[in-house]
Nucleic acid binder design. Structure first.
Lengths: 145, 145
DNA sequence: TAGTTTTCTGAAAGTCATTTTCAATATTTA
DNA sequence: TAAATATTGAAAATGACTTTCAGAAAACTA
């Protein structure tokens, strides 16, 4: 079931309504680069439809996260970011503290060790955050300021 | 060099001043349980000195993080938390989403894999965040609500 | 399909943690 | 000790997010 279908099903089951705004936001969200903040997506959406409100974008992104087609991220810059959930393997992020670029990485062996930690503490892991902050290859190559 | 000395040295080198507020905050911070939010530490400090201001507590905690004797944490509850840096091995956190309790864990093998990820992407890792969210043993044992 | 019910929307106001401002105060330097 | 400079606390400002509310839109019902 694709993500649009998942969303429609969620809306139906919850007795919510399927509005044109929600469809526009969903479409734009799914076709965007990952890791948009609410603000960024809002600005992008305004170009398509200048009347769309920030609150609606925000509420809709929350709704996406709720129904499992988006993941909320937070890289410590004080703005929530959202990325579409994809079918591929789970990934975490490298965040460049110079240019803000975000690289996704997968490391199944870390996931295994995480589960091990959970078992050790009798802790039921439901989610995790794992981010590596530093300087990306491009920024390292540039002259130091 | 202990953490008080590190702080004094930092203050000296930067041409800052060593005030009684900073000393009180440092002392209280180092002798507290980890993971205090600014608000929590502020309330605790007010009992010692009711005239101390929130802004001063906040500024001083930032200063501690700056000079390396505190780590700023953020567990997604919208409040920054700080913990004193200790000499022991680096640790990360298990955060219970029911009761808010925080368990520290160490897993050197994860650190090794992290470094490997960094090398793979030619990324200079400076810091990281790794948090596992879920239900702690105590909350699991309690009746479900 | 028209009427009814319910949810949505966008603008504006509110919230909350954090950050800044600024005049008074304290520390450090000369 | 005076002069220079940094710090403090209260209050105001900021900024991301959240709520409110009246009008608009969607879904249900007869």
């Amino acid at each position: 079931m694709d993500r649009v279908a998942v969303f429609n099903e969620y809306v139906r089951q919850k007795g919510l309504k399927n509005t044109s705004q929600r469809m526009t936001i969903l479409e734009t969200f799914l076709n965007s680069k990952s890791h948009y903040s609410t603000e960024e997506l809002y600005l992008k959406l305004r170009k398509k439809n200048p009347k769309i409100g920030y609150a609606t974008v925000h509420r809709t992104l929350k709704l996406f996260a709720e129904c499992g087609i988006a993941t909320e991220l937070n890289f410590g810059d004080g703005q929530a970011r959202f990325e579409p959930v994809h079918d591929e393997q789970h990934h975490d992020h490298l965040v460049c503290t110079r240019c803000g670029s975000i690289i996704e990485f997968e490391e199944p062996r870390i996931e295994v060790l995480q589960d091990e930690v959970g078992r050790k503490y009798d802790f039921k892991i439901e989610s995790h955050r794992h981010e590596l902050y530093g300087v990306c290859a491009e920024c390292s190559a540039k002259k130091q300021n």
